[in-house]
Amino acid sequence: MSLVILDAFDTENLIEKALKNLLQKRGETFFYFKLKEMKILACRSCGACEIKSPGKCVFHDDMPEIMRAIAPGSLILMLTPVRFGGYSSQLKKVLDKLMILVLPLYTVEDGHLLHPPRYGKKSLLVIGLTGQNLPGEEENFRLLAARNALNMQFTHKTLLFTPTDPMVKIEQEIDRVLCEVKPG
């Protein structure tokens, strides 16, 4: 399993620690991207990545580094605080640019109109950290992660933790889920 971690937390946190601990124990190799430290320009919806420059953004930023890890990889792991029942802007800056993981063409799968994947099917694990969230935000977060997986035709799992969850619990949960997610 080749693993790419997109960490949208601004500072070091429990999830990052637990995850790194676990991956070390499992002897897993992985790419770790601390998104705050990366220069990722916002998608301008210019459309160039569809035809003019297929599968590649024409603006120069750090996306190629991430894409070179993701394209051959099988599992994308996204870590984010839960913001307004969704992702933080730090994660979204990359996610908007991951539309190049799909082709600018259309297909119908299980009654859904979708774009075919450019690099085959992968798995997505979304890990959220709830803060002072309102009732319903967690469900919306889970729904969003499920929609992303459908959009990209990936298999997926979602985990949500609170800041008071002990490290061992976080490690165990991630360990369990890592065994379950397999590229579709």
Partner: peptide, 10 residues
């Protein structure tokens, strides 16, 4: 954008 608000909006 990708099932939710665009990055600049968030």
């Amino acid at each position: 954008y990708v099932d939710t608000l665009p990055y600049p909006v968030i």
